[in-house]
Simulated assay, not measured.
Amino acid sequence: MADLYIKALESERKSLWATCRLKGLGRNTPERQRIAALDELIVAHKSRPAGEGKKNAAGEPEKKG
């Protein structure tokens, strides 16, 4: 099954990067800072074990049922 979370992060990063390239934005713009944050989220998500369960916004395992 496709990991929709990672696909969404990568899609947002790609879109922001294209905007930065098109507009010639510098390093300290909010868009470039968001790209850096997305890079960290992508690395963290890819490095976690595959068997680890989903977590909610508070970082706690989701409850089923």
Rank of each mutant, 00 (worst) to 15 (best):
W17D: 06
E40M: 06
K14F: 09
E10C: 14
K23S: 01
R32F: 00
R27G: 02
P49W: 07
R21P: 00
A37D: 08
P30S: 08
N28A: 05
K23F: 02
Q33H: 08
E31P: 03
R27D: 02
K23V: 04
I6D: 02
M1D: 07
A36V: 11
E52W: 05
E12W: 06
T19M: 09
K63H: 08
C20P: 02
K64P: 00
K14G: 09
G59I: 14
I35M: 11
P49R: 14
A8I: 03
E31T: 07
T19I: 10
V43I: 15
A37H: 05
A36D: 07
M1L: 05
R32T: 06
K64Y: 11
K14E: 13
L41K: 10
K55A: 06
A57K: 12
M1N: 03
A50M: 12
I42E: 01
R21S: 11
L25G: 05
K46D: 00
T19D: 12
I42A: 04
K14Q: 15
K46G: 00
I6R: 11
I35G: 03
L25R: 14
K54Y: 09
E12K: 14
A18E: 10
E31I: 01
M1H: 01
L38A: 05
T29S: 12
N56C: 03
Q33F: 01
A8G: 07
W17G: 01
R34I: 01
G26A: 15
R27K: 15
D3K: 07
W17F: 08
A18S: 12
E52A: 14
K54A: 13
V43R: 13
M1I: 03
A18C: 01
G26C: 13
K46T: 11
R27C: 05
A36S: 12
H45S: 10
A18G: 02
N56H: 04
E12M: 05
A36I: 12
G26W: 15
T19Q: 11
A18L: 01
A44G: 01
K63T: 13
K63C: 06
K55L: 10
A37N: 08
I35P: 02
H45K: 15
I42D: 02
W17T: 05
R48T: 01
L22I: 06
I6T: 15
N56T: 10
S15C: 12
E10D: 13
K64N: 09
G24W: 09
V43W: 03
K7R: 07
K7G: 02
A44E: 11
L9H: 00
A8H: 03
L22C: 04
R32D: 00
I35Q: 08
C20Y: 07
E62T: 12
A58H: 08
L38N: 02
I42P: 00
K54S: 12
K54C: 08
A58W: 04
R27M: 03
G59C: 11
A58L: 15
A44Y: 00
I6Y: 04
T19G: 10
G65H: 11
K7V: 01
R32E: 04
G53P: 06
C20H: 05
G51S: 13
G65A: 12
K14L: 14
L16W: 01
G53N: 09
L38C: 10
E40R: 15
Y5T: 06
E10W: 04
L16Q: 03
G24K: 13
I6H: 03
S15E: 14
P30K: 11
K46E: 10
K54D: 09
G65Q: 09
